[in-house]
């Protein structure tokens, strides 16, 4: 693998992870914005590992 491709791939993966972490743990306003972009409901911050109380876990089917 050429050096620049290697670095570019690593950079993309790290940047994507950073963006995701910012989304998951960042301000709620950001999540609402992003959710609106994808047309889904905003989820609470960094949903706990075994959440029982944070709303439907999957979109209820019509």
């Amino acid at each position: 693998m050429s050096g620049w491709l290697d670095h570019a791939l690593v950079f993309i993966v790290v940047a994507a992870s950073g963006a995701y972490a910012l989304y998951a743990f960042g301000p709620r306003a950001l999540r609402v914005r992003v959710a609106a972009l994808f047309g889904t409901a905003a989820r609470p911050a960094g949903r706990c590992g075994s959440c029982d109380g944070c709303g439907p876990r999957r979109p209820p089917r019509a």
């Binding site: 790290v14 998951a24 590992g49 075994s50 876990r57």
Partner: peptide, 24 residues
């Protein structure tokens, strides 16, 4: 099944992304 799903989702999203950041 829900536990499994929640755990795997979490591993696949939050944990992976934090691990990548930590690695960086």
């Amino acid at each position: 099944w829900q536990r499994l799903e929640i755990f795997l989702t979490r591993v696949g999203t939050i944990i992976v992304s934090l691990m990548v950041i930590l690695w960086a």
